[in-house]
Amino acid sequence: MFSWKESGRIIFLLFVSSLIVVPLLATILGGFKSNGELRVSPFGLPQEWDLQFYGEILGDAQFWRYLWNSFLISIMTVVLTLVLGSMCAYAFAQVRFFGSRFLFNYLLLGLMFPFAAAIMPLFLTVRDLGILDTPWGVVLPQVGFGLAFSIMFFRTFFAQMPEELFDAARVDGCGYIQFFWRFTLPLSTPILATIATFVFVQSWNNYLLPLIMLNDREGYTWTLGAMDYRGEYAAEWNRTLAFVSATLAPAVVFFLAAQKYIVAGLTGGAVKG
């Protein structure tokens, strides 16, 4: 039998888990229900497992286009954020130069800048650059806003690398740039995976920026595509839920692939290794 303390802990964990699992299950199951049943029983199992909505969505070329657009934008954002963020953080972590502390703190100010507050100037800049209605119109602002956070994490990780490793590499003939490619990046898989996942999920779920920057339906991401099932007076919630459920898969696959590295990234350097 469980003690009171253990029982309390289990109940607490079940409660916290249910906060994540119940909405997820309700979303997936909702795609099998009729709109009427959804109203009556939003969380229960479907009376009939109707595959019609999932079938229709997965068979719709437009769905795959939305998905591809989201995927392309997310991958471009991840690659650019990792490349720029890691190189910038490497300079802050390894190279001593005048004003580095000020510059780093200035970059961190980006963390405190609310995304929504910048929407108007962002729109104008993107328009002036001529990249409105292209993936770059979403990718570049996402990268810009993701850099502060990624530089902070990268820098902390890089700064923990033993200095003697760099010294040994210098004696062997490595310069700063070679050391970055040959040592820093290969030894940073955990932090690369962690930041890639955060950035990917953030981009995958981004709604506001695509809404502002993308006007052509062909370029829509899935978050905009989900609105296809909402009319002025009514919403097809079952189709919307089936649609959302079908779009969860890539993000989940990405997360699962990176999971073991993410844990290492979050705890790396906590103890002497």
Binding site: P162, A168, A169
Partner: peptide, 28 residues
């Protein structure tokens, strides 16, 4: 350092953790 004709052995060994012994020795 690499142009001085020196080689150095460090207190913490400073081996390259992602390379094999052969690659470590031959890296320079």
């Amino acid at each position: 350092p690499s142009d001085r004709g020196i080689a150095m052995v460090f207190q913490s060994y400073a081996l390259y953790p992602h390379m094999t012994v052969r690659q470590n020795i031959g890296f320079g």
